[in-house]
């Protein structure tokens, strides 16, 4: 492993000035569970790591009137043990309880999980279907980017060199809505998803679908939304036929590939199966009597 310096700025201003000073020779580090592995595997060679851990007010879960704000330095373990997440953002809860191990969740942050932009990032699909936005800030100011527009390619996002991911802004799910995430993996822990499917449904009183969101992980070079399937579901009632068709459409929207972790045909097939299952769970969670 290459030697590097490790800096611990204590304010965002200090972070920005260090980022400016070191430019592409620096790498931001949050929990470090991804960055340290990349360093050890000799995939990245920064001269300097800039740690965000000592910057105050970066880890929080704020339950506001119509929004939930999650600071990017919030760990998965903090999300897992938060009743706000467990009760209101159920899809995200599903994702964080099955990510890595307790040891990993104790340090890995949600900001790191998203900013790394791995196609398999477990929190990406839930955040996508919860209509999350990312608050990006730099010394010049801040901007909000919807997560659906955030990812560009594996490991690549719309973030500029001088920006950091500050928080996620999630509209509070309406009444009669529910969300869920299904991680398909070989093992029940310490695993990456072969495929991840998140769905959120907002229902009308008559049990027709008011709004649908489908997020797919490891189904394309980045986490994606299945827009066509969402559109198809809107206004429909959740019958077996409708679910099957939604699954078919979502599956066609995906572009999975063969890898040692799973074959493309299997992933495509599982999108069909899991769309059905996850939608059913989301519907149940919407609690329509």
């Amino acid at each position: 492993m290459k030697k590097f310096d490790y800096l611990k700025p204590t304010s965002l201003d200090e972070v920005f000035s260090l980022m400016e000073k070191f430019g592409s020779n620096a790498k931001l580090i949050a929990g470090g569970t991804d960055v340290m592995v990349l360093l050890k595997r000799k995939r990245i060679f920064p001269d300097v790591l800039i740690s965000l851990r000592s910057v105050p007010n970066m880890a929080y879960i704020k339950d506001e009137k119509d929004k939930i704000r999650i600071g990017s330095m919030t760990t998965h373990r903090e999300l897992e043990t938060s009743t706000v997440i467990k009760e209101k953002l159920t899809a995200l809860y599903d994702a964080v309880i099955n990510l890595g191990s307790v040891q990993i969740r104790n340090v890995a942050t949600i900001g790191g999980n998203i900013a790394n932009a791995a196609p398999s990032a477990d929190t990406a699909c839930p955040l996508l279907v919860l209509d999350a936005s990312c608050l990006l800030i730099s010394s010049k100011g801040e901007r909000e980017v919807e997560l659906k527009d955030f990812f560009i390619a594996p490991g690549e996002t719309v973030m500029k060199q001088d920006e950091i991911l500050k928080e996620f802004i999630i509209p509070k799910p309406s009444k009669l809505s529910g969300s869920a995430y299904w991680k398909l993996s070989r093992r029940k822990a310490m695993d990456l998803p072969i495929l991840g499917v998140a769905i959120s449904l907002a229902m009308n009183e008559d049990k027709s679908i008011k709004k649908a969101r489908i997020g797919l992980g490891v189904a394309a070079p980045t986490p994606i939304r299945a827009f066509k399937a969402e559109e198809f579901l809107t206004g429909k009632f959740l019958t077996d036929e409708v679910l099957a068709e939604a699954g078919n459409i979502a599956s066609k929207e995906a572009s999975p590939r063969d890898s040692i972790r799973g074959e493309a045909w299997y992933r495509r097939e599982m999108i069909r199966v899991l769309t059905k299952r996850v939608a059913t769970i989301s519907f149940k969670r919407a609690n329509i009597v």
Partner: peptide
């Protein structure tokens, strides 16, 4: 991660 011996879960 990719050679999957079983976990306690």
């Amino acid at each position: 991660l990719d050679y999957k011996i079983l976990t306690a879960k």
